[in-house]
Write a protein that binds this DNA or RNA. Structure first.
Lengths: 212, 212
DNA sequence: CCCGAACCTGAGCAAGCGCTTAGGGGCCGT
DNA sequence: ACGGCCCCTAAGCGCTTGCTCAGGTTCGGG
């Protein structure tokens, strides 16, 4: 049930945000941005959710945009980390692709409120911050593309258009953040499993990697 | 090259918006909303793009939200229409599914600025207007689900989870509006073709519907 | 020549926005 | 006991927002 305390530094999602009050503000901002969008969210709303006055926000963050930047950066790093650890495992390309999609999708479903901000409020960032985040995003693309290329090279996959298929796979995963609803009928694990299977079909994997 | 004048009432996208000045405002609003998002767009910006004063907007539309509603409604109806005409053709389920995806994706790519507003600014609408639009959206879902169900029934498709696969197919198509870039390397037709193929793989279609 | 309808503008209102500033209260070592 | 430091708030500044309204221009019909 609770996967909050673990030995890996990966859990307790915003652990690295150092002053405790700043973390409360940041979590409040994630909720507000995910619910209403960045531009429709007021600094007063964020401060209110964190139980503080509007002015308290500016002790910990220079601007409202800095809040979005911190959220976006940490979120992207987490998502990329999830993808990387699965891609670097041993096993066939099909196993690694399935693992990567499963984990990536599960992350987008479990942390769908964070993911929504991270994926859909990107161009509310300022010029410099946006290009920084876009660079992180290209690395996700490279990870998936590499696995698919290896699968093609080893004769495991049948993919006529590697770039296009990479795009489609990532697009499919990312869009989970848009529609996933915690009160819906599917758990994050179920969605991850379903999507891993669909992606293997998309790349024409020869052998389904049976977990047994 | 130009598919702007045709006998079907479907072309010249905003033809049904009756006063010509209102149409200019609406087109300006689509551009602005797609570029910056609904909440970040000001009524002054919309009016400016249409070459009018801010006050002129309120002669043709009661509020800024009404503009979004008109755009959203017409856009959804168009997309649904595209989907429906392909779904009602004769042919195997695979042919109809491929046709539907191809056209739906092409629409999202060609009209990606409209599609972005239609698909991603949904919850900037007021309560009543949003539920009206959500109803339209469910109809798209039903169309795709029906084709997949028929394919399974006729033994053409191998789909363990029809609901989940329907969701994934629509999700894949809709997300095109987010990433498609007119200055990119792919044409709407190419993306449509690629996606139709990927979707047929997702449903495990027995026979690829060769157009020849 | 004038009339009324259709359409648009300049000026501006009340409200809400992001953000700043002056100052108060609790907790530390000494 | 007390000074320095951190954290927070009340109040509010300057500006922009969605939207309004009185008045001007254009036009076809009598």
């Amino acid at each position: 049930m609770s996967a909050a305390e673990e030995t890996t530094g990966e859990e307790t999602p915003w652990g690295e945000v150092t002053p405790e009050a700043a973390r409360r503000l940041l979590v409040a901002a994630v909720d507000a941005f995910a619910e209403r969008g960045y531009h429709a969210t007021t600094t007063r709303d964020i401060a209110g959710r964190a139980g503080m006055s509007p002015a308290a926000l500016y002790i910990h963050f220079k601007t409202k945009e800095e809040l979005l930047h911190r959220i976006s950066k940490i979120g992207h790093e987490r998502a990329l980390c999830v993808l990387d650890t699965e891609a670097d495992r041993d096993g066939t390309a099909a196993e690694r692709l399935a693992g990567a999609v499963r984990s990536f999708v599960r992350w987008h479903a479990e942390r769908h409120t964070t993911a929504r901000v991270v994926q859909y409020e990107l161009d509310a960032l300022g010029e410099e911050h946006r290009t920084e985040i876009v660079a992180l995003r290209r690395r996700s693309d490279a990870v998936v593309r590499r696995i698919i290329n290896e699968g093609v090279r080893d004769g495991e996959f049948d993919v006529p258009d590697v770039s296009g298929t990479t795009l489609a796979v990532l697009s499919l995963c990312i869009d989970v953040a848009r529609w996933f609803n915690a009160r819906g009928s599917r758990t994050p694990d179920e969605v991850g499993e379903l999507y891993a299977d669909l992606v293997l079909r998309m790349v024409g994997a020869r052998t389904a990697p049976d977990p047994k």
